[in-house]
Computed example of a mutant assay.
Amino acid sequence: MTSSALIFPTPSALGSIDQYIQAANRFPMLTEEQEKALARRLSNANDLDAARQLVLSHLRLVVSIARNYLGYGLPHADLIQEGNVGLMKAVKRFDPDRGVRLVSFAIHWIKAEIHEYILKNWRLVKIATTKSQRKLFFNLRSLRSQNGEAPHSLTNSEASDIAERLGVKTEEVFEMESRFAGGDVALEGSGDDDEDRHYSPISWLVDPAAEPAEVLETAQIEHLQDTGLKSALASLDERSRAIVQRRWLVAEDETAATLHELAAEYGVSAERIRQIEVKAMQKMRGQLTMA
């Protein structure tokens, strides 16, 4: 039978995951010659029908691999769907002239997509971010599962033994084990208890400075301190402006002038300096109110 004689009907809508698995298992498997012929059609002529046949004939492989990851508590259908994405990537990159069957080549891509999905969805917060952490995540869980161990705190000897078998540091094993043990925490409280809501994580994340009213008020204050203050000072005569600046707008490392110092400088009484200051401040307040 040649590759062109294969029949790969487009699957109809399926109502359950069991029906999907049954349909996947009904697609015929390819011989090595058929697989190479289809792969060359895809590579040389971008034949999408050839790609479709390669994908459909290996759906059972994805189902088989996805079944091994059911222990993470994620939907089987989602695991299969992510595995199918990996399968399609493998078909696109498959080179029939390298002497490797598609089934062997695709396993890596299928597992990679499933691993990525698990790490993103097993916990709301990722527990493994680097490549080495991801490898440890799956190896450690697989090892504990194979040994039939119930969840418990690792002893130093157990952690050392696992670290030696996986080729990592003991500290890394303890760190990953602690991430396994930690559960997700709801950002919001139950909603029934005011105290629970007050101490829920969402309350720690609130930034009062980001409230619209606070933002507007801050913007107005900054405007007054910058443009408004400059405009108010400009409305004063030279002597009044100098008195206000020497009394109230000195730098942090400078000392404000006293009424008597200014009185001696301008040749008037301290009371006269105070009156000029009060009048200048009143005028500035009026200018700032209109700003």
Rank of each mutant, 00 (worst) to 15 (best):
A219P: 03
P201A: 01
A66Q: 05
E214P: 00
L229G: 00
L48E: 14
V85S: 02
L249A: 10
Q225A: 11
Y199A: 05
A150F: 11
E252M: 15
W204I: 09
W122M: 12
S43N: 08
S16M: 01
E116Q: 13
V250C: 06
D49T: 09
H152E: 11
N147W: 04
F180Q: 06
A112Q: 11
L6C: 04
A209V: 06
D161Y: 06
G167I: 07
A5H: 06
L70M: 11
A24C: 14
Q81K: 14
E158L: 05
R98E: 10
M176Q: 01
L187E: 13
N25A: 09
A51E: 08
S235C: 05
P201S: 03
A213F: 07
L249I: 12
I202F: 06
L288Q: 07
R26I: 12
V63C: 04
S231H: 09
L140N: 08
Y72N: 07
S132N: 08
L249D: 06
A256P: 14
E82I: 03
G182T: 13
E82C: 08
E214L: 14
V85I: 15
S12F: 12
E217N: 10
G267V: 01
K230L: 05
E35D: 04
R197A: 12
A264E: 15
T10E: 15
A181Y: 07
H223V: 05
T130S: 12
L154T: 10
E175Q: 12
E238K: 11
E171C: 02
V55F: 06
S178A: 13
L59P: 01
A90N: 05
R101H: 13
F180G: 03
H76W: 06
F27G: 00
P151V: 08
A163S: 07
K111W: 05
D207R: 02
I202R: 06
L143V: 01
I21N: 00
P28G: 02
G228K: 05
L259Y: 12
P11W: 00
S231I: 09
K36D: 05
L259K: 11
D47E: 04
V278G: 05
R134D: 04
A77W: 14
V250R: 06
T255D: 10
Q282C: 13
M290C: 09
I162N: 04
P9S: 12
S145N: 08
H58R: 10
I17Y: 08
D226S: 13
A50C: 05
T289R: 10
I243K: 00
